[in-house]
Design a protein around this nucleic acid. Structure first.
Length: 428
RNA sequence: GGAGGAGUGGCCGAGUGGUCGAAGGCGCUCGCCUGCUAAGCGAGUGUGCGGGCUAAAACCCGCACCGCGGGUUCGAAUCCCGCCUCCUCCGCCA
């Protein structure tokens, strides 16, 4: 959520900055609702004040036995109460409308974010690793997975439907090994606290991190419940401290969590229909940071490095992309995507997205801290990043480590997590 | 699923219709005192919103907030209704 005071004071600037996202947002509407809210509020407050004074006067009059005077005044105050009731209804309506509009405004892009329309204007800022030279035609992971009997799409369709997969044999083991490897790296080396949150979350949390109200169609909702399947661990992790005032000493907070992620992929019909790149359910190890505002941009850089290190240790070539304004997510002020090389598809595939949301989510979720030097509580900055998407990591391992005979070599760092297994071979 | 109990400030806890944003205690901050520490003494110490002042603060005024949402009343932390959360007991269960 944007600061209403900022919108009030610099509506033109806000509108212009938001328009760099490639869409026009009704900032004037917000300004007008805010103006009306204050107008009504002023009247409501002065009426309440009058009522308060006169009511206590009535109390005194009755105590002094001046019943008649008291009754007279009482009738008067009753009228104020009636007028107030009308105005309060109006105030509530305006406030609800204002809140609704505010919840639909995205975050303002950071000044360092390149202006652009869509992903073609993103900037590649870093490349790591050399794509391997193949002396045979590398296969896409869905072919490798089928041949090795570790990925089974047909049977997943039987028990559920399309965009689901069953991992089998070493495939299931590989997925599990990756989760443990990533969690170990982030907790032991990078200093994140491990959390295992609920995989079902409520509406308030989803509003807090801004999946709601705008992206409802992306979520799986439980029938007869105001609960949803978690689309990313960012939601439970960031909302852990909703409505809290943290002492500054407690910051920064680093959290990591493994969760499955459930996404309806409503707007993605026909995209990435083969393989495990785009599934309704996938595993992810998430990184979340809660920090003081002054530090959030350096924290974003180190968050990115924490995610990158997973790929480096796995020996998977990747590039880092700075998203342009038009490609930026709703809550983010700045985002780096990490894209892993997928030789079987001859393209880079997003495997992590690291964002600084500044105080956008903190306002929605009401997460504040009390500055050391004292004074008013301030909003924290929140950051999140995948560290990494596990299914896509399996994809990248299968494609990058495939051999001509159809087997796949296991990256060394994973072997201790797989009982020493060095290679996944075809079953005979 | 059944029965009962509880939700008040950073924490504990009093308050059952008016002068209660809320006693008291703890904690914290500042000052005094003091070889040091502790104790003692004094003062201060919630959040949000609106308005005034301001370069911006500080500050001042007002309104709201005693789990959440409604209602009754001239007036609600206090009465009524609904909901949420937590706890205890019983039952069931991985």
């Amino acid at each position: 959520m944007l600061d209403i005071k900022l919108i009030r004071e610099k509506p033109e600037w806000v509108k212009e900055r938001l328009s760099t996202r490639g869409e026009e947002y009704p900032v004037e509407k917000v300004v007008e609702l805010d103006r009306r809210r204050r107008e009504i509020l002023k009247e409501v407050e002065s009426l309440r004040h009058e009522r308060k004074e006169k009511s206590s006067q009535i109390g005194r009059l009755f105590k002094e036995g001046k019943r008649e005077e008291g009754q007279k005044l009482s009738a008067e105050v009753k009228k104020i109460g009636e007028r107030l009731k009308e105005l309060e209804v109006e105030l509530r309506e305006v406030e609800a409308a204002l809140k609704q509009e505010l919840l639909l405004l995205p975050n303002i892009p950071h000044e360092s974010v390149p202006i652009g329309e869509d992903e073609k204007d993103n900037e590649v800022i870093k490349r790591w690793g050399e794509p391997r030279e193949f002396n045979f035609q590398p296969k896409p992971h869905w072919e490798i997975g089928a041949e090795l009997e570790i990925l089974d799409f047909e049977r997943a369709a039987k028990v559920t439907g399309s965009r689901f997969v069953v991992y089998k044999n070493e495939g299931a083991l590989l997925e599990r090994a990756l989760i443990n490897f990533m969690l170990d790296l982030h907790t032991k080396k990078h200093g994140y606290k491990e959390v295992l949150p609920p995989f079902i979350i409520n509406e308030k949390a989803l509003i807090g991190t801004a999946q709601l109200p705008k992206f409802k169609e992306e979520l799986f909702k439980l029938e007869d419940w105001d609960y949803y399947l978690v689309p990313t661990a960012e939601v439970p992790l960031t909302n852990l401290h909703q409505d809290e005032i943290l002492p500054e000493d407690a910051l920064p907070l680093y959290y990591t969590a493994y969760t499955p992620c459930f996404r309806a992929e409503a707007g993605a019909h026909g995209r990435d229909t083969r393989g495990i790149v785009r599934q309704h359910q996938f595993n992810k190890v998430e990184l979340v940071k809660i920090v003081v505002p002054e530090k959030s941009y350096e924290e974003l850089e180190s968050l990115l490095l924490d995610a990158e290190e997973v790929l480096q240790l796995l020996g998977l070539p990747y590039r880092v992309v700075l998203l342009c304004t038009g490609d930026l997510g709703f809550a983010a002020a700045k985002t780096y995507d990490i894209e892993v090389w997928a030789p079987g598809q001859n393209r880079f595939v997003e495997i992590s997205s690291c964002s600084n949301c500044e105080d956008f989510q903190a306002r929605r979720a009401n997460i504040r801290y009390r500055p050391k030097e004292g004074g008013k509580p301030k909003f924290v900055h929140t950051l999140n990043g995948s560290g990494l998407a596990v299914g896509r990591t399996v994809m990248a391992i299968l494609e990058n480590y495939q051999q001509e005979d159809g087997s796949v070599i296991i990256p060394e760092v994973l072997r201790p997590y797989m009982g020493g297994l060095e290679v996944i071979k075809k079953k005979k």
